[in-house]
Design a protein around this nucleic acid. Structure first.
Lengths: 237, 237
DNA sequence: TTTTGACCAATTTTGTTTTTCTGGTCAAAT
DNA sequence: ATTTGACCAGAAAAACAAAATTGGTCAAAA
């Protein structure tokens, strides 16, 4: 089950699925399509995944991991990554870079297709706040640590961040292209705005954010491992 | 054509249409439904409006006027309405208070229905930036007047404002209700944030925004009268 | 003069049948 | 021991016809 070759191939299948589903959506992408794109037969796909649904779920989990790691990497690279704006900036970059996290967040019917209706799926779990509460957690801890001004309700701040993230991935076609700024300029602008409006004036607290993000990503990772373990047990039954 | 009684009835027809279309959408609301709700016959509706499409267009224009006047009224009432945050706050209240402006902005297919596909319609004109460029114009003039810090690209600021407005009217169901703050708290928070991040430190400029909004709404009103005139000429031909 | 609502052509919806497609399996090939 | 792809049952889509609804009109009623 854990052969190197197989794991490589599992990755290739997910790559193929990612490319096709991002373009044609879950419904219009068939398992045969995925197999062809991955250069193997349909039967081989089912050696790695129980069902189309399970395949897609694995893809979403992989993309979520990629997203989180990408976020963290951008953050560590950023000198000023310890501020709220820095942390949020990295998140927005990571989010806009990942079609599936973006699709989940905007509840994209075209990409997620019938998957959203399946009982007890990843999408529903995602929606229950698993993800947005991460942002609340972050704001809350930042305030508790004195890095954020505490004269604004953390729930309000979190929701503003959600609104901006939602706008970033959902406004295609709403504003004419010539009025839409470059992604980079936009995200940098958002970060500057957040910092100016929300950071504590105390400069000694300017770096505390990084540690908090590390903690949160770490906790999320542990939750993920827990989940994977319990799913394995479920399968083995 | 300009009898008081008739104009009253025209308003009642639009009221009926507003109520029904806001709930069932353009496609599922029939002219008979509107007539019944307005307490008159179907034929009478056609004494006031050329077609269902024209009726809806008239409704949208009325709603846009209501929205603009509401915005202005909120603004004048607000002591601190001259700041960017104050102006934006009023706009967000007016927007979230008006189902049709909100529907236009979020491109709501359920409410707008087949109307969006009609050639040369209000929705398309609306989309071409007629509306969002108002916000750009405002930011631009605020900066020119020295009321706004000029170290942020006005296009970026405008787009952030568009994102927040979009999020406000489009995120129903995206974030669980228990994580969503009250509308008032949210809008006030946004206003505070915008002011802190973007207003010039110069306190003498803190009231200049009101005048600029007045100018812009005035110009928009003149554009509207122009439009109405040219449409009348078109009809008379 | 003003208003109505029966009426009509045209569209939309609904119901039904036929055809195609797709997720998943497994005996045979590698 | 792996991998394949023909195969199948069930789902989805397409095609078609029948029924219902709707935007719009206008002779008749008010």
């Amino acid at each position: 089950m854990a052969r190197t070759e197989n794991e490589d191939r599992e990755g290739r299948i997910l790559d193929a699925a990612a490319q096709l589903i991002a373009h044609f959506g879950y419904d219009k992408t068939t398992v045969s399509d995925i197999a062809r794109e991955a250069g193997i037969s349909k039967g081989a796909v089912y050696l790695h995944f129980e069902s189309k649904e399970a395949l897609f779920e694995a893809l979403l989990i992989r993309e979520m991991m990629t997203y989180a790691l990408n976020w963290l990497a951008l953050l560590e690279k950023d000198e000023a990554g310890g501020t709220l704006g820095g942390m949020y900036k990295s998140m927005l970059y990571a989010l806009s870079d990942n079609p599936f996290m973006a699709a989940l967040f905007r509840q994209d019917r075209h990409i997620l297709g019938n998957y959203v209706r399946k009982p007890d799926n990843f999408f529903k779990r995602f929606q229950e706040g698993q993800s947005s509460s991460t942002r609340f957690e972050f704001v809350h801890r930042m305030q508790a640590a004195g890095a954020l001004r505490d004269d604004l309700d953390p729930q309000v701040i979190t929701h503003i961040m959600n609104m901006l993230a939602y706008g970033l991935v959902s406004m295609d076609g709403v504003i004419p292209a010539e009025e839409t700024p470059e992604l980079d300029d936009l995200i940098e602008g958002i970060a500057v705005m957040m910092d100016r409006a929300l950071m504590s004036p105390d400069p000694t607290k300017a770096d505390i954010g990084k540690q908090i993000v590390r903690e949160i990503v770490d906790e999320a990772y542990q939750r993920y491992e827990q989940l994977e373990k319990s799913e394995q047990e479920q399968t083995e039954q």
